[in-house]
Simulated scan of single mutants.
Amino acid sequence: MKKKNLNEMSFLDHLEELRWLLVRSTLAIVIMAVATYFISDYLFETIIFGPTRPSFFTYTYFCELSHQIGFADSICITEMPFIIQNTEMEGQVNVFLWICILAGFILSFPYILWEIWKFISPALYPKERKNAKVFIFFSSLLFFFGVLFGYFVVIPMSINFVATFKVSEVVQNQFTLDSYIGMVKTSVLAGGLFFELPIIIFFLTKLGLVTPKFLRKYWKYAVVIILIVAAIVTPPDVVSQTIVAIPMLIIYEVSIFISVLVYKNKIKENV
């Protein structure tokens, strides 16, 4: 059946399109989640619980960096003084399912973007519709970079901080499986979605909801928020906080640059 033009579609038609977008996207996530079942041993042992070991790549790299900048072993990690325990009967089953779903979402993200593009494309100009591949490529690339940033930077920093922080030597750290997995999910998804900020700003500027002037006006507040987030998820040292804050500041600056380009194009089109 021929797809209706945007102007011909009623509100119910839009809802129907949205419903099928959600159905196809959910199906893609489920398929990829099932696929991860076959690599579940590697997924959990190497990826999910990798940051709990001192031999993890990030800890090794930061230790080498510490030596290079003259900090000796100040940020080297030789042990992880905590254990992860399951306190619920169905805890490990629930964790297994949710991690597979998370992996399914990450792996199917480009396809979900394609579905979103198909949904919004009727509202775009013909020349803008031709940029589907560019949109999906850069959006997916930014998302995967954000996921990697959350995994290799935010998670290790967070684990290092909470594992070594003590109010007293009497207290031993014994983290629940749910709290650890929750931190992993939040860090990875937050990283991926934050790195989508340039794409979000692109569309908000196109719609006239955001302007470069607005972003510059609140630049100082954005910097403060980013520094606070970096301070929360990292150990209390300048090096770690800088490593987390710099990529986030760059993403915000890129978003402003994209907003400027889009805003200028809108002005030219209206002249």
Rank of each mutant, 00 (worst) to 15 (best):
Y221R: 10
L65R: 04
A222L: 07
L141K: 02
F119V: 05
V233D: 06
G191P: 02
S158T: 15
L12A: 11
V244P: 01
S74V: 07
A245R: 02
I200D: 09
L6R: 03
A132M: 14
V239L: 14
V134Y: 10
V260D: 14
V244H: 04
E90I: 11
A123M: 04
G192W: 00
S255D: 09
Q85M: 05
L21V: 00
L12N: 07
A231I: 04
F105H: 09
A245H: 07
C63E: 06
F56S: 06
P122T: 09
I47N: 12
I83E: 04
I243S: 10
K264Y: 08
F38M: 10
I199D: 01
H14W: 13
W117G: 00
V154H: 00
I232F: 10
A132Q: 09
I116R: 01
L177T: 12
G91Y: 00
D237Q: 09
E45P: 03
K266M: 11
P198N: 07
F214N: 14
I106W: 02
I99W: 01
K264I: 09
I159G: 00
P122H: 07
N86A: 07
Q85C: 02
V262I: 06
V238F: 14
A123W: 02
L177F: 12
G208K: 04
V23Y: 08
L141G: 08
L227I: 07
I84C: 06
K166W: 05
L189E: 04
K130R: 15
A190C: 09
A230D: 01
S259K: 04
L22T: 13
S10E: 13
Q174N: 11
M9F: 05
F195T: 01
Y221S: 13
Q85V: 15
I159V: 09
L227D: 14
P81T: 10
V23F: 14
Q241V: 05
K3C: 06
L18P: 03
K166L: 13
K266P: 01
V162F: 14
F161V: 05
G104N: 11
I48K: 00
L249A: 08
K130D: 01
K185Q: 14
K264R: 15
D237W: 12
N270D: 05
R24D: 13
Y151K: 00
S121G: 07
V34E: 03
E17S: 06
V134L: 13
